[in-house]
């Protein structure tokens, strides 16, 4: 096989791995949107907050230490212990569930039956609040996140695929962290789908997504479902935050991964779980291949920054409801 072709395959694989992560982030949006009609602007900040919390607990940071020090004149920062990763993850999950309960109690409960735009505005407020709260709780500096997954090119894959090409092909270069992230995201997405298809709570989730009135009439409590959905979204945010955070540090820019989910949602439709998955893969592969085939050789590169949005725009013109979204038919 020619080296060019193999490089193309390598680009494709990397695109698929990036795509799985986009799918995961988009899934967080879709879950909440389906269950409550809310476009959750805070999804990205939730990922940041979850990652901050995980690092904070793991490294034994004292929450609100800056605030405490400023008020009491103390100089405390660390508890002086490290919490094992697994336990820190469990505690973080607990905190995200608590967050879901608080969101329901303080916001959603009071805004039932409001216009979507009002709910959207509420999540904008929530996003800024959570961003500030996260910084206040754990400090705003960039933190290194280490959950024990090795980083860098995977030697084993590189060596065992080198034979595919000729002398100028050295094997596929795939980052180990990306491989882990992909496997975890695939497992997570698959279990979410299984959960929603084959358990009674999953069935209740789908029922609420379909028709609120009917769901109430069979005895489903919307508020309980909202807590569950926001908890799941919090968990998805944690996974996304950890994977991105492990790569580039836990810092504000992490919350911008939400922006990457937007074109995925436009492609896949806001209400479709398969749409979020396929949309994520198309964008992941599309932006890497476009850069490889057209961007780098002809356009001076760096097309990855805008390709997804352009693709989404083109798509919006021809199929505004997304790949799998329900057809929008206005009753007249």
């Amino acid at each position: 096989m020619s080296a060019d072709f193999l490089f193309g395959v390598e680009v494709l694989l990397n695109g698929l791995m990036a795509g799985v992560m986009y799918s995961l982030v988009a899934l967080g949006f879709v879950l909440i949107f389906k269950a409550s009609g809310i476009f959750n602007y805070a999804q990205g900040v939730m990922a940041l907050f979850a990652a901050q919390t995980l690092v904070g607990i793991q490294t034994g940071l004292i929450p609100f230490s800056h605030l405490i020090n400023a008020m009491l004149g103390t100089k405390i920062h660390h508890f002086g212990w490290n919490v094992p990763t697994f336990i820190a993850i469990l505690i973080t999950i607990g905190i995200m569930v608590l967050f879901a309960i608080i969101v329901e109690k303080l916001i959603l409960k009071h805004l039932v039956n409001q216009e979507p735009i009002i709910l959207f505005m509420a999540t904008i407020g929530l996003a800024y609040f959570l961003e500030g709260f996260g910084d206040l709780m754990w400090g705003a500096e960039i933190k290194k996140l280490d959950v024990g997954i090795p980083q860098g090119g995977n030697l084993w894959i590189e060596e065992s695929t080198a034979f595919l090409g000729g002398d100028d092909f050295y094997g596929f270069y795939l980052d180990t962290l990306d491989i882990y992230a992909t496997v975890i995201a695939v497992i997570l997405v698959a279990s979410l789908i299984l959960f929603s298809q084959y358990t009674k709570t999953g069935r209740a989730l789908r029922a609420v997504a379909d028709d609120h009135q009917a769901a109430l009439s069979v005895g489903i409590s919307l508020r309980t479902i909202w807590v569950i959905v926001w908890s799941i979204a919090g968990f998805v945010a944690l996974v996304a935050g950890v994977m991105w955070g492990a790569k580039s540090g836990v810092q504000f820019s992490l919350s911008l991964i939400a922006l990457k989910a937007l074109p995925v949602l436009m492609l896949g439709g806001f209400t479709s779980i398969p749409g979020a998955i396929i949309g994520g893969l198309i964008i992941g592969v599309g932006e890497k291949l476009f850069e490889f085939l057209i961007g780098a050789p002809f356009l001076g590169g760096a097309t990855e920054n805008w390709f997804a949005y352009m693709l989404a725009l083109v798509f919006l013109i021809f199929r505004p409801q997304g790949l799998f979204g329900e057809k929008i038919i206005e009753r007249v």
Partner: peptide, 10 residues
């Protein structure tokens, strides 16, 4: 319901 309220996708 008077206007059927089923879970249409299910």
């Amino acid at each position: 319901f008077q206007n059927i309220a089923l879970f249409k996708g299910m």
